[in-house]
Design a binder for these strands. Structure first.
Lengths: 213, 213
DNA sequence: TAGATTGTTAATCGATTAACAATC
DNA sequence: TAGATTGTTAATCGATTAACAATC
């Protein structure tokens, strides 16, 4: 807990991608890699890779490069996926179910503990072994199970209210899929996935790519 | 087609958010807004708002501010959502179904024309009125219906292959939900939604927020 | 007109790239 | 040892913020 230097959002956004590429190298039995080789694969500069990594420490060795498995594990630690994070899903529609069913999250330490919805017709319905619970139980559930993360896969009109409820009950972080900003206290971590905005960015590029290139 | 000045990705990422806030203002019957007021709502600087907008033209009026409806429409045009974009969904799992069922995309001009999967068990299954079609029909379908965008909600191991097929058949853009990079020709537009990376960024912040703040 | 607020230039800040000494 | 490649400093580039003249 020495270094208090602020890591930029741009660096943090790139870390999971490094992690993914290193994971693929491990699967291909590659033991070591230089920043130059990795930069060619990932289409970023070698300089950026080295700068990014050296925000967190010196993981390589001059004349050798980086040990793939070691670097992979270290980035995993930096990302905090070397330990478990308890998570609930609020909103048992298709999107919520997609997340529950996506096994890879568990592999990264994100352990789903429960699934909630406010639709009585869904009560008790099973999603990958989880019985859908009603929203009036969510606060107690969060407290009893020390839930860290709530994924909100719910319509925007209820998102703020639900956000307030889960924060009150003690979640540290919200993974927000609702198409709205939540306006929660500063100490609550919010990661937004705004699909409609992603699609509009795509659309922008289509509309404006008639460039000479 | 005069101005050839390159717009940065940071600006483009912000445009849909401006658009969303302006849409909410319209719903609240707000007619005009200054960059200062908007900056307070959105928690960005007024300077940034004016700079961003002036990349595309002068939409405001000194001493008055911006006409909300006018600015909303103009940003819509910039984003290319003033016209229709034909889209297909490849992968009829929960995530694919979630997208098909999300009506707001249609409201923004993204018109879904078909849903595809390679699982014979799903053939003919209806998702919001669309019969799931098999992958051997996708190339013809793209050509006949002039599909612009293919959303890939499929596992990463088949993503590249499917990406190549739809690009060959003529799509201009891919909305990629598979956890991999696609490595397509430069002129193909790819917008990635990597949910596991989003979750890792969240996890990073949890792990590293023990800051003084 | 006076006040408000834009559009835009200038200043600052931060991120990326380049360069190279350190060192394996 | 010589060659390779890192870690890190310096240079460049770009994005954000501040300032203010133009103007509604």
């Amino acid at each position: 807990m020495e270094e208090r230097k602020k890591i930029s959002a741009a660096v943090i956004r790139r870390l999971p991608r490094y992690y993914r590429y290193l994971g693929e190298l491990i699967e291909s039995d590659v033991q070591r890699i230089s920043s130059k080789e990795l930069s060619a694969k990932m289409k970023v500069t070698a300089s950026q890779i080295r700068q990014d990594l050296n925000n967190f420490g010196g993981f390589g060795q001059q004349g050798y490069g980086y040990n793939v498995k070691y670097l992979y594990d270290e980035i995993g630690k930096i990302l905090g996926i070397d330990r478990e994070h308890s998570m609930i899903i609020i909103g048992a529609g298709n999107l919520g179910q997609a997340i529950v069913n996506y096994a890879d999250f568990a592999k990264r330490g994100f352990v789903i503990k429960g699934v909630f919805d406010n639709n009585p017709a869904l009560e008790g319905k099973e999603v990958r072994g989880f019985k859908v619970q009603m929203m009036d139980q969510v606060a107690d559930f969060i407290k009893e199970n020390q839930i860290e993360i709530a994924a909100l896969t719910i319509p925007k009109k209820v998102a703020r209210e639900v956000g307030a409820v889960v924060v009150d009950a003690g979640v540290k972080a919200i993974w927000n899929f609702a198409h709205t900003d939540l306006n929660l206290p500063e100490d609550i971590i919010v990661e937004n996935v705004h699909l409609s905005e992603s699609l509009m960015q795509l659309s922008y590029t289509i509309a404006n790519r008639a460039e000479g290139k």
